[in-house]
Amino acid sequence: MSEVLVDVKGVVLRHGARNVLDHVDLQIGTREIVTLIGPNGAGKSTLVKAILGLERLDQGSIQRRAGLKIGYQPQRFTVNAALPLPVHRLLTLTHRQSRARQIEVLTEVGVEHLIDASVHTLSGGEMQRVLLARALLRDPDLLVLDEPTQNVDVAGTVEIYQIIAALPQKVGCSVLVVSHDLNVVMAATDRVYCLNAHICCSGKPEDVSRSSEYLHMFGPSAAKTLAIYPHAHDHTHGPDGRVAPDHAHHHGHHHG
């Protein structure tokens, strides 16, 4: 991490008596991919909105580099059916761009044929790609993607994460990804933060997936989720075709 784009320090955010965010620290540097994971209701989207400057903090501070340009892909996105909106208008919602440039970026995400389509006719996966293109068209310093592969099939998810993984080198921007599909994200990311109101653990993906806080946070089913991750490692290291129960067993040992 060379220069810090976003510096979250000791942020507390309350809804009533509940601490939605509890002393959260997080940094995003230049050309970094940072992944934010956590269970439902952990405050992931709230933290994202705080970073975007859309939430009032009860404590702590969030410093953004002066003039930081952010492209944002929200988790929920539906357009009122009464509003006729072609894709090219959605792309230029907050930022003018030439048609040639629009086609160029749509091509990068694989949906250039949709430029004149109505947004109301897009599938879930197509919409996610168009939204990614829209955020990219701002030439952002930081891309904030809240669950960018929701409603996308497995093949599409892999492809979208490949596109995202290439961005820091290709475009020079940093990426903050909120996710729950750990297996795919972890490969491409520089740093992972596990959030459950507070930051349970953070670090390189392989370290985080072994931490006991992480296991605790995701509850009993975490062992299962995690089993998939080392499993992938086993396949690359020793392709002797071990079966799943062995891994669960092995994992239990590790944890205990």
Binding site: L54, N80, L90, L93, T94
Partner: peptide
């Protein structure tokens, strides 16, 4: 106003 109507958070996050 169109941007705000399509998505409040996108618009606000991107400087409107």
């Amino acid at each position: 106003l169109i941007a705000l109507t399509v998505h409040e958070d996108i618009a606000a996050a991107e400087g409107i």
